[in-house]
Each structure stands twice: as structure tokens, then as C-alpha cells.
Amino acid sequence: MPGEKSRTHGGALLVSELRVLFRRRRTWAMLAALASIPVLMAVVVRLSAEPPGPGEGPPFLDQVTNNGMFVAVTALVLTTPLFLPLTVAVVSGDAIAGEASLGTLRYLLVAPAGRVRLLVVKYASAVAFCLAASGTVLLTGWAIGAALFGTGEATLLSGDTIGVGDAVVRSLLVGAHVTICMLGLAAVGLFISTLTDAGVGAMAAVAVLTIVAQVLGQLDQLAWLHPWLFTHHWLAFADLLREPIVWTSFMQNALLQAAYVAFFGALAYGRFSTKDVLS
């Protein structure tokens, strides 16, 4: 028996965490809300008498009628500043604080889950949600776009024309960029989640922070700060729709998000590993 006990089953907690995440009605409600955005957009464009002209409506909307796949890209433009981070704020802000307010945190810890392991698993599941969220927008966009407008050639920002295969690759890249954009936010959310026992408070704080960061990003007086805001490159995926692709902002964003993950991960570790769990 003691020999048996020394064996560890590390992945089980992650599997269990993902099950809990994706068995919650809340998770599905958020994914459904995200999916509704490309659907609504595509249906409205389809039903309108005149197709949108260049420069009308959100970016790339005029492209939608040529290539349905651009529904996905336009939907990502619409969801990235607010809806998507909001859902990520809910999941990441709830990560530790939610367990604390349910009271299950103490039981996980005496199981024992291990505080570092629990923190890592919680972040991993938040990452999985980011992927699921942007993937939902992307896939729904593709599906509804292809169904209503078909697929065809697409025009890049540089004026060059690309085929369907290339358009799929480009929109996948945009999805990847948006997912990476959410990773830093998820780390911030995880840290805030270790500060409180009130899940709703943590979610609200993360959501507010997202908006504050974007507002700060609009103030020219703070230009020195802008490259350090986690929201700085959120809409930079336009660079993936130029010919040839501009990788600079994609790479800078990946580095920036990695820095956020490292810093707020370290803060979350400092806080959570020394925290008195009294809930």
C-alpha cells in the first residue's frame, strides 16, 4: 500500500477541472452568447437589402459577402475588446475565489491537491476556456458564413487576393492571436482570484481592469505605458491580414503575454501559497 501511494496521478485533477468547467451551465451559456455574435451579424448582413460597402460597419464586414469566412474575422474584431475578455474574466476570476466561496477549496487542499498544482491546473483550465471561447467564435463564424455566403476569394488589407485555403489559414492565425491575447488576462484574473473569497468580486475586478487598460491605451499622454498594457496588441491581428503577413505585432504580443503570465503567475503563487484558507 505505501508503495502504491507514492505513485502520483498528476493529470487527473486537470481532467476533473475541465469536466467541472464544461459541465457548468454557465460555461455553455457564455459560449452560446459568443456564438450568437457571428450568427447575428451574418444573418443581419444577409437580410439587409444592400451589402455593406467598404468602410461601413465593423472592419471586414464588406468582405463577408465575398467570402463567408470573414464572418469569423469580423466577429473576432467585435468580440475581442469586450465580450471575449468578459467571459475570460468570469472563468479566471472565479478560478480560486469561486472554490473559496463554495467552500470546496478547503476540501481540495486537504485532499491534498497541493497549492501549486491546483494553481497550475486552474490556469490550464482557464487557457482551455480561452481556446474554447475564441474557437467558438471562429468556428461558428466559419459555419454560418459558409452557409449564408459560401466561400470564395478574399481580399487582404494590402489589396491582394487570396484563395479559400489561405483564408482558412489566416483566420486560424487570427484566432490564435486572439487566444494568446487572452492568456495574459487569464493570468491577471487568476491572481485577483487568489485575493478574495468572493468570486463575483474577482470577476468584476478583472472585467473592470480590461476596460481600464483599454481606456489607458487611448490616452496619448500615457504613450510610454502603451506597449506594456496587456490590451495593447489585442486588435493587432489586422497585421495577419496583410500581404505578406507582418509577424512583428504577433510576436511582440506573444512575448508581452508571456511576461504577464510569468509575472502574475508569480504573484498568484506568492499569494496563494501563503494564504490562510478560511472560507
Partner: peptide, 29 residues
């Protein structure tokens, strides 16, 4: 341990709640 009253995920069944806690114990088979 049972500490200051039981606590569970309301949206999971009783058995799933136990499975979750068991999965948290990395020594549990």
C-alpha cells in the same frame, strides 16, 4: 476531513463531487 460543514459543487451529482475530490488527491488510484 470534514471541516466546518460540507461543501460541494451544486451542479455536480453526489458521486461526481466525490470523484472530483478523489482526483484532487494525486495519490488516489
Amino acid at each position: 476531513a470534514l471541516i466546518e460543514g460540507p461543501a460541494f459543487y451544486p451542479f455536480l451529482s453526489g458521486a461526481d463531487n466525490l470523484r472530483r475530490l478523489d482526483a484532487a488527491d494525486r495519490h488516489a488510484n
